[in-house]
Amino acid sequence: MFDYKLLSALAAVVEQAGFDRAAQALGLSQSAISQRIKLLEARLGQPVLLRASPPQPTEVGRRLLNHVQQVRLLERDLQTQVPGMNASRLPERLRIALNADSLSTWWAPAVAPFCAEYGVVLDHVLEDQAVGLKRMRAGEVAACVCAVERPLAGARSEFLGAMRYRALASPTFIERHLSSGSIEDLLRAPAIVFGPDDQLQHRYLASLGLNGAFSHHLCPSSEGFVRLLQSNLGWGLVPELQVRAELASGALVDVAGGPPIDVPLYWHHWRNGGELLAELTRALGQSARQWLVV
Rank of each mutant, 00 (worst) to 15 (best):
residue 202 H to N: 13
residue 160 L to T: 00
residue 141 V to C: 02
residue 221 S to A: 05
residue 209 G to N: 06
residue 177 H to N: 12
residue 206 A to E: 14
residue 176 R to C: 09
residue 163 M to P: 07
residue 161 G to I: 11
residue 211 N to Y: 12
residue 157 S to V: 02
residue 178 L to T: 05
residue 230 Q to S: 12
residue 198 D to Y: 05
residue 166 R to E: 14
residue 217 H to F: 13
residue 165 Y to V: 01
residue 188 R to G: 09
residue 163 M to V: 14
residue 136 M to K: 00
residue 175 E to K: 14
residue 144 C to T: 07
residue 141 V to M: 01
residue 158 E to V: 04
residue 232 N to M: 09
residue 179 S to L: 10
residue 210 L to Y: 06
residue 149 E to R: 15
residue 174 I to K: 15
residue 150 R to S: 13
residue 207 S to L: 13
residue 156 R to L: 08
residue 155 A to Y: 03
residue 203 R to H: 12
residue 138 A to K: 00
residue 198 D to S: 05
residue 191 A to I: 01
residue 212 G to F: 03
residue 139 G to R: 03
residue 153 A to P: 04
residue 194 F to L: 10
residue 230 Q to E: 14
residue 188 R to S: 15
residue 164 R to A: 12
residue 168 L to M: 10
residue 183 I to Q: 13
residue 162 A to E: 13
residue 231 S to L: 10
residue 203 R to Y: 10
residue 199 Q to P: 02
residue 231 S to V: 07
residue 137 R to H: 11
residue 208 L to H: 10
residue 216 H to L: 03
residue 205 L to E: 11
residue 168 L to D: 06
residue 232 N to D: 15
residue 220 P to E: 00
residue 225 F to R: 08
residue 206 A to M: 12
residue 145 V to A: 08
residue 166 R to S: 14
residue 219 C to L: 05
residue 212 G to H: 04
residue 152 L to H: 04
residue 224 G to V: 00
residue 139 G to C: 06
residue 199 Q to W: 08
residue 182 S to C: 10
residue 191 A to K: 02
residue 216 H to Q: 09
residue 153 A to I: 09
residue 200 L to Y: 01
residue 189 A to Q: 07
residue 212 G to P: 06
residue 157 S to F: 01
residue 164 R to I: 14
residue 132 G to T: 00
residue 214 F to E: 05
residue 172 T to S: 14
